[in-house]
């Protein structure tokens, strides 16, 4: 096989891997939108906040230490202990559940019945607020996630596949971290589907997603479901934050990963978990293939960002609700 063809396959494989990471971010948006009709602009910041919290807990950092030291003249920075990863993850999940409850109690409970645009604006405010709290709580320096996630090339794959081509083909390059991310995403999606299909709370969540009024009439607490959904979105945000944070360190630009999820949502639909996955994969492969075949050689490169939106817009023209979204029917 020619090297060009094999490298094309390598680009597709890496596009699929990138797509998994996009889908991880998009999943959080879908969960909240499906259950409450809120487009949660703060999902990217939630990923940042969750990752900051995880690292802060693991390193035994004193939250709000800068603020405490400035007010009281103390020199507090660390508790002097380190927390094992599994316990830190559990504690971070607890923090995200508390965050979900606070958001529901102090923001959205007061906005019931408001127009979707008002709810959207509230999430923009929430994003800026959460970013500021994250900064105050854990500081703005770049942090490293010490979860022992593998980095570097999957050498075994490179060695096995290098014989497929001639001397100019070096074997397929795939990051070990991407393989782990794909496995984690599979487990996460399976767990979400099992939860939604086979648990009482999951069924209640689906009932609320289908029809708020009907769900209320059979005694389902909307407040509880929304706290539950925001908590699940918080867990998804933690996973996304860890995976993206492992690539670049945990830093404030992590919140910008939300921008990578938007074309995925436009393509896959705002209400479908499989849509988020398939959408992520299509966007990932599409942007990488375009860059490899056209963007890089003919357009000066760096086409990934705008091409993802172009691709999503193209799908929107033919299917406004996205590939897997619920069909929009307006009855007059």
């Amino acid at each position: 096989m020619s090297s060009e063809f094999l490298y094309g396959i390598e680009v597709i494989i890496n596009g699929l891997m990138a797509g998994v990471l996009y889908a991880l971010v998009a999943l959080g948006f879908v969960l909240i939108y499906k259950a409450s009709g809120i487009f949660n602009y703060s999902q990217g910041v939630m990923a940042l906040f969750a990752a900051l919290t995880l690292v802060g807990i693991m390193e035994g950092q004193v939250p709000f230490s800068h603020l405490i030291n400035a007010i009281f003249g103390t020199e507090l920075h660390h508790f002097g202990w380190e927390v094992p990863a599994f316990l830190a993850i559990a504690l971070t999940v607890v923090v995200m559940v508390i965050f979900a409850w606070l958001v529901q109690r102090f923001v959205f409970r007061h906005l019931v019945g408001q127009e979707p645009i008002i709810l959207f604006m509230a999430t923009i405010g929430l994003a800026y607020f959460l970013e500021g709290v994250g900064d105050l709580m854990w500081g703005s320096e770049i942090k490293t996630i010490a979860l022992g996630l593998p980095q570097g090339n999957a050498r075994w794959l490179e060695d096995v596949t290098s014989a497929l081509g001639d001397d100019t083909f070096y074997g397929f390059f795939v990051r070990q971290l991407d393989i782990v991310a794909a496995l984690v995403a599979m487990v996460l999606v399976t767990a979400l589907i099992v939860f939604a299909q086979y648990t009482k709370q999951g069924r209640a969540m689906r009932a609320v997603a289908d029809d708020h009024q009907a769900a209320l009439s059979v005694g389902i607490s909307l407040n509880f479901i929304w706290v539950l959904v925001w908590s699940l979105a918080g867990v998804v945000a933690l996973v996304a934050g860890v995976m993206w944070g492992a690539k670049s360190g945990v830093q404030f630009s992590l919140s910008l990963i939300a921008l990578k999820a938007l074309p995925v949502l436009m393509l896959g639909g705002f209400t479908s978990i499989p849509g988020a996955i398939i959408g992520g994969l299509i966007i990932g492969v599409g942007e990488q293939l375009f860059e490899y075949t056209i963007g890089g050689p003919f357009l000066g490169g760096a086409t990934e960002n705008w091409f993802a939106y172009m691709l999503a817009l193209l799908f929107l023209v033919f299917r406004p609700q996205g590939l897997f979204g619920e069909k929009i029917i307006e009855r007059v």
Binding site: N14, G295, G296, G300, G301, A302
Partner: peptide
């Protein structure tokens, strides 16, 4: 030769695959 990376630069798969090739 030049290789552009779009802002903010979190995703550089295409650029580094090209460097590897």
């Amino acid at each position: 030769s030049e290789l552009a990376v779009d802002h903010p630069g979190q995703e550089q798969t295409a650029q580094w695959l090209q460097i590897r090739r």
